[in-house]
Amino acid sequence: MKSTFFRPLLEAAVAIFLVLGAARWVTGLFSKRTHVYQATAARQMRLLFWPLLALGAGLSVLPAVAMGEGPVSGFEWTLTLGFMAFTLVLSGPALLLHLRYWMLNHDTTLAFQPTDNRFEVYEAGQRLPFERRDLARVERVTCRARHSFWAKYDYLRLHLHDGRIITLTSLLTELEPLAVFLRSVPTERKGRYWCWV
């Protein structure tokens, strides 16, 4: 009974995933490379794929055990809850970072094209008034836990002379090209195991 219910859902999810991936690939062939970065669904899915997969694997065990035929022993419940806790420990930090970064940058737009010396940040459609010469220093924070689900979550903080701080997270784009572009500004590089802002 369980397989007759979950199998069509799994097949539909795989079909949708393949169709969306193929559509993205085809449109990527004919689209012009953009220099405007936002927290798009594709970027979020790229960051969240493994954490959500781990979370789904952990949570899928509970219905399988609960709806199984026959009684479930205490040992089986212990294994089930242990596996769920393990997957939450693996995926939970990445999900928390993603939520935090989304809260910081969901209305942020970054216009960045180094060949034209263009670097602009917009919040809710309004350009933040600063120039490159207004930057006092740049703080670049990367993740040291390279083999974790949250390894791709990092951020860049722009400290302006007037005291303002602009935070750009990896939810927008890869930040290393931007850090290279701003290399003339004093840069402080830090490595953390969990890049909470």
Rank of each mutant, 00 (worst) to 15 (best):
V36T: 11
N105H: 07
R144T: 15
W25R: 10
A136T: 04
F49I: 06
A85I: 09
P93L: 05
A13M: 08
R132F: 15
G28Y: 09
T34L: 02
L88I: 14
F112H: 01
A64I: 02
D116A: 08
H106C: 13
L59W: 06
S73W: 05
V72A: 01
R118Y: 15
A15Y: 12
L47K: 00
A13R: 03
D107W: 11
G92Y: 00
V61E: 02
A136Q: 01
G82L: 07
V141D: 02
A124F: 07
R100H: 14
G74M: 07
R137I: 04
T34F: 01
D134V: 03
P114H: 00
T78A: 13
L97Q: 01
R118W: 15
M45F: 15
A41H: 10
F86H: 10
Q38Y: 02
S3R: 13
A54P: 05
W25P: 05
L53P: 10
E69A: 04
A22M: 15
V138I: 03
A145C: 08
W50D: 08
F30Q: 13
L90C: 14
A41F: 10
R146E: 14
G125E: 04
L9Y: 11
R140P: 04
L79A: 07
S60W: 00
R133G: 15
G74W: 04
G68M: 01
V19W: 13
W102E: 05
W25I: 09
T109Y: 03
T27K: 05
G68K: 01
E11T: 15
W102I: 09
L20F: 11
A57I: 06
V19M: 15
G56S: 13
R146S: 08
P63Y: 03
L88F: 10
Y37D: 01
E120I: 02
P93C: 04
T40D: 14
G70T: 02
G74D: 03
L18H: 13
A94H: 00
E131V: 06
D116W: 03
Q126A: 01
S60G: 06
W77S: 03
G21V: 12
F17G: 09
D107T: 12
A94P: 02
G74K: 02
V61Q: 03
G58D: 12
V141A: 08
L10P: 06
W102R: 08
F5K: 09
R140C: 11
E123R: 09
M45W: 15
L20I: 09
L52T: 05
H98M: 05
N117I: 07
R144Y: 15
E131K: 07
L9W: 11
L79F: 08
L53M: 14
Q44I: 05
W102L: 08
L135W: 00
Q44P: 07
L81M: 06
E139V: 06
F49N: 07
Q44K: 11
L104S: 02
V121E: 02
A136S: 03
L95I: 12
F6Y: 10
F6Q: 07
Y101F: 13
A22W: 14
W102M: 09
A12V: 01
T109G: 02
H98R: 06
